[in-house]
Simulated assay, not measured.
Amino acid sequence: MQRYAFSGFKGMMLGTALALSSGSFAWALDPNAAVSPESGPFDLFKFGFKSYQQGNKQDAVEAYRYAAEKGHTGSRWALATMYADGDGVTKNDFEAFKMYSEIASQGVEPGSNDTGFFVNALMALAEYYQRGIPKSPIRPDLSQARQLYFQAASAFGDTEAQFRLAKMLLTGEGGEPNIRQAKKWLNRARKEGHVGAMGVFGNVLFQEGQTVRGLAYMTAALDTCKPSDRDWLQAMQEQAFSLVNEKDRRKAIELSASIGRSTE
């Protein structure tokens, strides 16, 4: 059976273990808890998740560590994310990078319960390669980031990966620019409901001379976006809006209403 596997970490050893040994922890699971270091990985994961929800992040970290040592992918991802966010532990992007790398290096069976964790690990690694990690061996590598986004976009249909890949293709980050491929990925992502992709897709159409249709997509995106995306979408839409005549503006606004309800 085919496995999706990640490769190509330059200068890194993908086989590096997490070095999680039970004797290395100062903390101890509550002796009255239903789990112990000898419990199964899923029971430890559930205990860690419950502890996290209750605000007992120290217990969550320890439970996740024991579960990760036993090979539980979800626990390893949760622990990596806590390090990436500085959530319950001291923020350490390089430590998070190594844990995400462990997940990515193991691959995943298509359709398995670990697929989401695997894709999220690819996305996190791509972000790290885009900006690098100060005071670590990880330097910006846009080509590697683009490769990771392509893997998540193509093999797993992740709409955020499709959107980010498209932006790199538009600007030529990490390789040659390719407007045609960028439009393909933007179109796929926006059909699956990615509002940012809809807006950028519209902007590309606008730049190509499809004034009304492009402005309509940008307007539809602005009308349905999350607050976190409003500023950049609004700036893009308003700039285009200022460049067209009143007749085309009215047509675009009328068309945007139907675009917002469909995947035209």
Rank of each mutant, 00 (worst) to 15 (best):
S75V: 04
L44T: 04
A216Q: 03
A235Q: 12
K50C: 00
S258L: 11
V244E: 11
Q239H: 15
F94K: 10
I179P: 00
G172Q: 05
K183D: 02
V212E: 04
S258H: 12
P31I: 09
A257C: 03
V119F: 03
E208W: 02
T90V: 13
Q2H: 09
A84F: 06
V200H: 09
V119E: 02
P110S: 09
P177E: 11
V61L: 14
M13L: 05
L20A: 10
E173Y: 10
I133H: 09
L165S: 05
R3C: 03
S242N: 04
Q207E: 15
Q2S: 13
L122V: 08
G74T: 03
T171N: 09
G193R: 14
E62F: 08
G196R: 06
Q237P: 07
G23E: 09
P227S: 15
F150M: 06
D158N: 14
F45R: 08
R230N: 13
A161P: 07
A240D: 00
A216H: 06
F45Q: 08
T224Q: 02
Q234L: 11
P227W: 10
V35A: 11
G172F: 04
H194A: 00
S51E: 00
P177S: 05
M13I: 14
I138D: 01
A34G: 13
K184Y: 15
G8A: 02
E176W: 01
R146S: 05
A235P: 07
T159V: 12
V195N: 14
A153T: 15
A124D: 09
A33V: 03
P140D: 11
L215F: 12
G88V: 00
G157T: 07
V244S: 13
T16W: 13
R139P: 04
P31R: 10
M99Q: 13
E238R: 08
A19P: 01
D248L: 02
N187R: 11
D158C: 00
Y66F: 15
R139E: 14
E95I: 15
Q234S: 15
G111K: 09
L44N: 01
P137E: 12
N92T: 14
F45I: 13
R3A: 10
P137R: 00
F49P: 06
F163T: 09
G209F: 13
A216Y: 09
G86R: 04
F97V: 05
G40E: 12
R230S: 06
V35D: 08
N113A: 05
M13A: 13
A17I: 09
G174F: 01
F45D: 02
K226W: 02
M236K: 01
S101D: 00
L125N: 11
S112H: 00
A5I: 15
R131D: 13
Y149E: 00
F49H: 10
F156A: 13
G8E: 03
A197L: 07
E102S: 08
L122E: 01
F42D: 07
L79R: 11
A152M: 06
W185V: 03
S228T: 15
E69G: 10
V244R: 14
K57M: 08
R261I: 11
V108W: 01
A252P: 09
A124F: 02
Q207D: 11
L215T: 08
T73K: 00
N178H: 11
E238I: 05
M198H: 08
